[in-house]
Simulated assay, not measured.
Amino acid sequence: MKNYYDITIIGGGPVGLFAATYARMHLAQTQVIESLDQSGGQVSALFPAKEIYDIPGFTRLTGQELIDNLTRQAQHYGPEIKLNQTVQEIITTDQGYEVVTNQGSSFTKTIIVATGAGAFQPRKLRLPEAGPLEGTKVFYFVKDQTPFIDQDIAIAGGGDSAVDWALHLAEVAHSVTLIHRRDQFRALESSVAKLEPAGVKLATPYTIRALADHNEKLKLTLKKARSTTSEELVVDKLLVNYGFVSNNNMVRSWGLDTDKRGITVDRTMMTSRPNIFAIGDAASYPGKTPLIATGWGEAPIAINAALNAIYPDRNQALHSTQLIKNFVKD
């Protein structure tokens, strides 16, 4: 006889980890399948050292601190977390689904997809000279701020990530120059307002047209938008924050309906396949705001809907004060 998990969560990022915690609070048999060799998703892989400012209850904390807290919380409730496993196929069975990964199969009554935006890679600087400089003078994300201490840093980009890194590195670098092709930034207004007081220099509206080694430093040739004017900037390191390109081809192969923003879901977070739900950046619906906090709110909706489908006669406790009594407190 096959052993069926109550809930399988695909994706071990911030939203998947909290979903696992909430599912185990309900004593649901829960497994988390994560394709990377560590939990944390994009936060751990791409910006563990970056400080995050929109997490409820915290003025600011780093990405790694967030993941460490969520991991400890999940471990307290004991979901089964499987790393280095990529879901390749989801097959319908008479009791739910068979989840086929690169390491074997397991069976589950319901599934919650928390894969974020899918497989991802940074949008790179389209200059031939950038490639050989990657990892020494040209960077696309920061796992450790130590190499940037007391350095002259240029940051290219105009979104939240670029502005946040400018503010963060301004605290440890000798100087930070933020380069953007427009005068207006796409980041939160409150963050943009902090740039000048933090000592961040602005190079707008400029784009990077050339890179060159210059006496063990890096010389950037900047071209002003809608002009023939150009300037040169010499720095130690360049951090490019042009965003990331995601690939959801694997999710589409699972037979789930999608639109341009992700997997389409209804008000219970259910997808086009019965008892398969999507939450976090993986889910799409009108008015969706792509924040970690949004995904955390979607997780209980999906978990409760999944458990109601499995156990329709059971009254589900909704609040932590009702759920925590099933576990011994630390």
Rank of each mutant, 00 (worst) to 15 (best):
A166T: 04
D6K: 11
M269S: 11
A156E: 00
L211H: 04
A305P: 13
S246G: 07
L291T: 09
G104M: 09
A45C: 02
M1H: 11
H168T: 12
D152W: 00
A74D: 00
L318T: 15
N308Y: 13
G158I: 08
S246E: 04
V200M: 01
T62M: 07
D257T: 15
Y242L: 09
F120C: 11
N215E: 13
V192R: 06
L169N: 05
T294C: 10
K329N: 14
D266L: 08
V99I: 15
S253T: 15
D259N: 15
N247D: 15
Y242H: 11
K325Q: 14
A19D: 00
H26E: 06
N275S: 11
E80Q: 08
A170T: 00
D37P: 00
M270Y: 03
P147S: 13
N241R: 12
V142R: 04
F58N: 11
S227Y: 09
R273E: 06
I10C: 02
L323Y: 12
Y285H: 09
D160I: 02
V200S: 01
H174P: 00
T321N: 10
R60H: 10
A154D: 02
Q151D: 02
A187G: 00
I292Q: 05
R226M: 10
E189T: 11
A299M: 09
K223Q: 15
D150I: 12
N326W: 14
K82H: 14
L133N: 04
A293K: 10
D266A: 05
R123E: 10
K329D: 12
N275E: 09
Y53T: 04
S39A: 05
K50H: 06
E129F: 00
E129R: 10
L195C: 01
K124M: 08
F18W: 08
R24A: 00
K124I: 08
L17I: 07
A130N: 04
G280T: 01
R209P: 00
P312I: 11
T71Q: 11
T268E: 14
T146A: 15
F327M: 11
P205T: 03
T258R: 05
I9T: 02
R209S: 14
T71R: 10
